[in-house]
Simulated scan of single mutants.
Amino acid sequence: MTYRKVKRIVSLIFSIFSLVFMTPICLIACIFIVLESSGNPIYMQERVGINGQKFIMYKLRSMYIDAEKDGHQWAIKNDHRITKVGKFIRRTRIDEFPQIINIIKGEMSFIGPRPERPEFVNEFLKYIPDFNDRLAIPPGITGWAQVNGGYDLTPNEKLKYDKYYIEHESFQLDSLILLKTIKVIFTGHGSR
């Protein structure tokens, strides 16, 4: 069996078991999200996945409902659009938990390049012609770029980390990324 097939099976099994642990946390977070800012606590957004296929990615909403009334924007440090609850769930990465559904559906993996929004992909391609190279494998909830800078990386830096992962993907590298992800969750490093 190839590495990617085994990785898919492991991701699927781990996702199903993770639902038991993550569902109560998500429900509690949803209550706090709605108490602070009314509206749907689950945020659905179009992203670009493997081979450029678009899919709807799920997250817990960390911003106010009208956060993008003036058009799409890249999140910045101390972003005024992020709620108080949003700051916490972003720092602890709880906002990413609903992406377990994307993994079960086969749209994502636990580890891989973070999926970007189509608007940003089109923008980045204007000055980074090989930005789509990161679409060679399924996107992930976490990845080499996320544990080596996360939100603070430029698109060019992110691409370099993603290409490194694609060229060197292995169970050893995945294990290292998982360990670093746990550290990121507990330290809040790289969150916005």
Results as ranks from 00 to 15, higher is better:
M1C: 12
T2M: 14
Y3I: 02
K5G: 10
R8K: 13
I13K: 05
S18P: 09
L19F: 08
L19D: 00
C26R: 05
L27E: 11
I31F: 15
I31A: 15
F32V: 04
L35H: 06
S37H: 02
G39H: 04
I42N: 09
M44T: 14
I56V: 15
L60Y: 07
L60K: 02
L60R: 04
M63D: 07
M63H: 01
K69E: 15
D70R: 12
Q73S: 10
W74E: 06
A75T: 14
I76P: 07
I76N: 08
N78C: 10
N78H: 13
D79F: 11
H80N: 14
R81T: 02
R81W: 05
G86T: 03
F88A: 07
I89T: 07
R91P: 10
R91W: 02
R91F: 03
T92R: 00
E96Q: 00
F97W: 05
P98D: 06
I101F: 11
I103P: 05
I104L: 14
I104R: 09
G106K: 10
G112E: 03
E116Y: 00
E119N: 12
F120P: 03
V121Q: 04
K126L: 14
Y127R: 12
D133Q: 13
D133M: 11
R134I: 01
L135F: 10
I141D: 01
A145K: 06
Q146M: 08
V147K: 09
V147W: 02
N148E: 01
E157L: 00
L159N: 03
L159I: 00
Y161I: 05
D162G: 04
I166H: 08
I166M: 00
E167M: 00
E169Y: 13
Q172S: 14
L173W: 10
I182R: 08
V184H: 09
H189N: 15
G190V: 03
S191E: 01
R192Y: 15
